[in-house]
Design a protein around this nucleic acid. Structure first.
Length: 566
DNA sequence: GCCGTTTTCGGCCCGACTGTTTTCAGTCG
């Protein structure tokens, strides 16, 4: 799967072209990159089928460039641009306030190639001499440079959500504020988040922005205007607050929930129908047609309401226009968790504690699936597993509202065999198979290993199928198409693991799996009672993958579920 | 460089804010 690589090369070309802008070639490259980035199939397969030019935004020229990248692994056009401008573009672009134009000027006039050069020239006060720059720009560069060096980039949704909720809570406690919502990629529930967008309705913009800027979470105020303010928070993340009138709030929510590509498409649709769309409403000439609610805005544009998790411009607009959006699985549809650990292996809470917490969440069932054998996770041997089954029976007897299922997360050896004997597996209600060792195996062997696990009759669920960990570890090099067709053929359930770092399967893979007709589960892989709340992240991922209730097996009643996995 | 339910040529999303200007360019989202 080279989609990511092709997209990043095209994006890099766009970065260089932007130095000479305004140039619509830039937009063309970015659009093509976005198309490829959000493709759920392998771009190499599309090339093989000769269908590259059927993709939106890909014409004759970019088609040829994609072929070159796939054939040779690089793009001569980009290599020449790099020679012409031998810059550390990523680093320079990460300095707030520096864009392609200024970077080009800095290189041509002062020979600045990287952050060290930039710092040197700023300290010598050479930058303020350049056209369009001044003392303030120079000082800002120096200030932002330090931050660019430290910055870790996007943060995990699971880590940012609690912070954004706290901010929302604080703002909504103000009497002056009529409405507050978090928008942006947090509202879309994207797996990583770049900043926090807060939208408010108030008659007192200055007071509200002052309150926001003075929160103890704020390290520094970056921008302050009449309708928006940007601050840098203690954790290095930026947060924006924007103030609207009540009648504008729906269109503001649409616009600031994004994505960027979705906004561009929506505005084009407005134009094609003789209207104009911005964050203040949908307009025909001067007359406002909609703006108060999101539903009104989508309706004025001639389409159904699009749930935030789908707003990535990957086909949802067309579906909304045709009334064919999926009826997404809902956060309240989940009837149980099928992958949790207790203190019988590497979990921190007891079986009873986990059961009570699940019961609090109104679950109908909970599968106890501790590790087997692997030493690192205090995995259970056969005797302990038998003992644990007895304990589960005992707790089940004690609790009325919830049913505990006997399960195990069984380790797959390097060849895809389970590390538990058949007679024991037979006793379990549910068997999860997972890779926990020999992760750097040769890709071909890893593929065989996992396919072999799917063929095992005892395996009900494959846990965290691709093994990725966000910001930590790449996925195994799986042939994902083979995985999905084998899962469907063997009726093995694929897990959407809800751990903030995993979210595995990821959104795009969920979408693909749904198209393949695979069965999915959303589970938390909890190691503590607190972790059960990760379910929200997993369901969000399922929704981002267009999954419906029928695709997710733990929305089923206990009876229906047991029939499926028996 | 791409694209077409007014177009095969002439468009290409839109607004806020800042710093440098003195009417605007660059950046950001």
């Amino acid at each position: 799967m080279q989609n990511q690589k092709v997209a990043s090369i095209l994006n890099r070309v766009a970065d260089y072209l932007e130095m000479d802008g305004p140039d619509f070639r830039t937009k063309a490259y970015r659009r093509a990159a976005h198309t490829i980035e959000t493709l759920s199939v392998d771009i190499a397969d599309i090339k093989k089928q000769g269908k590259l030019e059927e993709l939106p935004g890909i014409g004759k020229h970019i088609h040829a460039k994609i072929e070159e990248i796939l054939d040779t692994g690089s793009l001569e056009y980009l290599e020449n641009l790099k020679k012409e401008f031998p810059l550390d573009l990523d680093a320079l672009m990460s300095v707030e306030g520096l864009g392609p134009k200024k970077i080009k000027l800095l290189y041509q006039e002062l020979g600045i190639k990287n952050l060290d050069d930039l710092e040197k020239e700023a300290k010598r006060h050479h930058i303020r001499r350049l056209k369009g720059m001044g003392a303030k720009t120079e000082a800002k560069i120096l200030q932002n440079l330090e931050f660019a060096r430290k910055s870790t980039g996007r943060q995990l949704l699971g880590e940012v959500l609690p912070l954004s909720s706290l901010i929302k809570q604080r703002i909504s406690a103000l009497d002056l504020v009529e409405q507050v919502e978090i928008a942006g990629s947090i509202r879309r529930r994207k797996e990583t988040v770049g900043d926090i967008d807060v939208l408010t309705v108030t008659q007192h913009p200055d007071e509200v922005m002052d309150f926001f800027n003075r929160m103890d979470l704020v390290e520094e105020v970056i921008v302050k205007g009449h309708s928006k303010s940007t601050v840098r928070l203690f954790n290095g993340m930026d947060a924006d607050i924007r103030v609207f009138k009540e009648d504008d709030f729906g269109s503001a929510m649409v616009y600031f929930t994004g994505s960027r590509e979705l906004n561009i498409s929506l505005r084009k649709i407005a134009i094609s129908q003789g209207m104009k769309l911005n964050e203040y409403g949908v307009f025909h000439d001067e007359k406002r047609l909609a703006g108060k609610t999101e539903v009104d805005v989508f309706q004025a544009l001639g389409m159904d309401y699009i749930p935030p998790e789908l707003r990535e411009n990957t086909g949802e607009i067309e579906a909304a226009q045709e009334g064919k959006l999926p009826l997404l699985v809902d956060y309240g549809d989940i009837k149980g968790d099928l992958h949790i650990h207790t203190n019988w292996s590497d979990g921190k809470s007891s079986i009873m504690e986990m059961a009570l917490e699940a019961s609090q969440r109104d679950y109908e069932y909970l599968a106890i699936t501790d590790h087997t054998c692997i030493p690192v996770a205090r995995g259970m041997d056969e005797n302990r597993l038998i003992k644990q089954m007895g304990e589960i029976d005992r707790v089940n007897h004690e609790l009325e509202d919830i049913t505990l299922l006997k399960g195990a997360e069984v380790n797959l050896d390097s060849y895809g065999n389970l590390d538990m004997p058949r007679d024991l597996l037979e006793e379990l209600d549910i068997v999860i198979a997972a890779v926990h060792s020999d992760l750097r195996q040769d890709p071909e062997k890893m593929n065989e290993r996992i396919l072999r696990a799917l063929e095992n009759d005892y395996v009900d669920i494959l846990a965290h199928p691709t093994g990725r960990k966000l910001k930590e570890r790449k996925p195994y090099q799986l042939n994902i198409e083979n995985l999905f067709s084998k899962a469907r053929e063997t009726e093995t359930i694929l897990e959407i693991n809800s751990q903030p770092k995993r979210l595995d399967l990821k959104d795009m893979h969920v979408k693909m799996a749904v198209e393949y007709g695979c069965q999915l589960s959303v589970s938390t892989d909890s190691h503590h009672t607190h972790d059960l709340s990760f379910m929200e992240l997993g369901v969000a991922t399922a929704r981002r993958g267009w999954a419906e209730k029928k695709d997710i097996v733990n929305t089923f009643s206990l009876k229906k579920l047991l029939k499926l996995i028996s």
